[in-house]
Design a binder for these strands. Structure first.
Lengths: 118, 118
DNA sequence: TCCTTAGTTCAAAAGTTATTGAACAATTGG
DNA sequence: CCAATTGTTCAATAACTTTTGAACTAAGGA
C-alpha cells in the first residue's frame, strides 16, 4: 500500500453514498465487484473516462474507503474493500451492486460505444 | 398527492445514492424510517436546518423518489417511499438506515444543541 | 541512456449543490 | 376580514465537484 487510505472505522456513510452516487464511479465499483479478488489497473476503466478524470474518480473512491490502491511498478492495483465495507455497513455494498446490475441505463466497463480491438 | 414525484421505475440508483449522501437528508430519512407509517410535516425537521433549506432538501428527496409529500391544508405530510424503494433496490434502504443508526457522528432529529421546550 | 507505459498533479473552466434572506401563497382560526 | 401558521419561490452567493489539457514523475525495457 502506498497512497493514503482511511482505516475501516474512518469510513463515513454519507461520504461513501455520495461517492457511489456517480455513474462513472458506480461502474468502476461494479466492475471491481464482478472481478473480486483480481486486482485491476486503471487502464481497465479507460472506456469510462479520460485518464486524468479516472485518476480523479479513483482517488475519490480510495479516499472514501471504497477501494484500495496499491502501487506496483508503474501500475496501481485497485481492489474493492469489501470486508471493510461489509463490516462497517452490512449489506450496503451488495444491495448497491445488485441494484446497479439491474439498471440498464448505467454506464458499465466494456459497454462503451468505442470497442477495444482484440 | 400534489407535487411531482417520479414513478417507482423512474427512481434512479445514482440519484438516490447522491441524495442520501448528505447528512441532513440522511437524518430526515432516518427519522421518517423510525416513525414509519406516521406522516410527518416539515416542522419536525427544523432542528436540522432552516425552513428554506429544509424545503430544498425535502424537494431533493421527493424528486429522487425517496419520499412522498402530500399537501394537506397548509402542511406537507411526508412519508418514506419504502415499498417503491424496496422494490427497485432490495435491501438498500434497510442497510443505509442501519448504517446511519450506527453512526454517532451523524446529525439526527431531536439531537440538536437547541432543545425544544416541552 | 532513451523511450515507452502508467498514472499523477496542477491550474483553469464549467457545472452543480447548498445556504441564505426577503417576498410570496394558501389555509385556518379568531 | 385579519392575522398567524406552513411552507414555497426567487435571486444571490458561496462552496464544492467534475472535466480538461499540459506538464510531470517513476518504473521498466531495448
Amino acid at each position: 500500500m502506498s497512497l493514503p487510505h482511511p482505516t475501516a472505522d474512518q469510513i463515513s456513510l454519507p461520504i461513501v453514498l455520495a461517492v457511489l452516487g456517480d455513474p462513472t464511479r458506480l461502474a468502476i465499483v461494479r466492475y471491481l465487484a464482478s472481478k473480486e479478488g483480481v486486482p485491476l489497473n486503471c487502464s481497465k476503466f479507460l472506456d469510462l473516462a479520460s485518464k486524468t478524470n479516472l485518476s480523479y474518480h479513483l482517488a475519490k473512491l480510495r479516499e472514501a474507503g471504497v477501494t484500495r490502491s496499491e502501487a506496483v511498478g508503474t501500475s496501481r492495483l485497485i481492489t474493492l474493500r469489501r470486508d471493510d465495507l461489509d463490516k462497517r455497513f452490512p449489506g450496503l455494498l451488495d444491495s448497491v451492486i445488485a441494484a446497479a446490475d439491474g439498471d440498464k441505463d448505467l454506464p458499465a466497463v466494456g459497454t462503451a460505444e468505442v470497442e477495444v480491438s482484440a
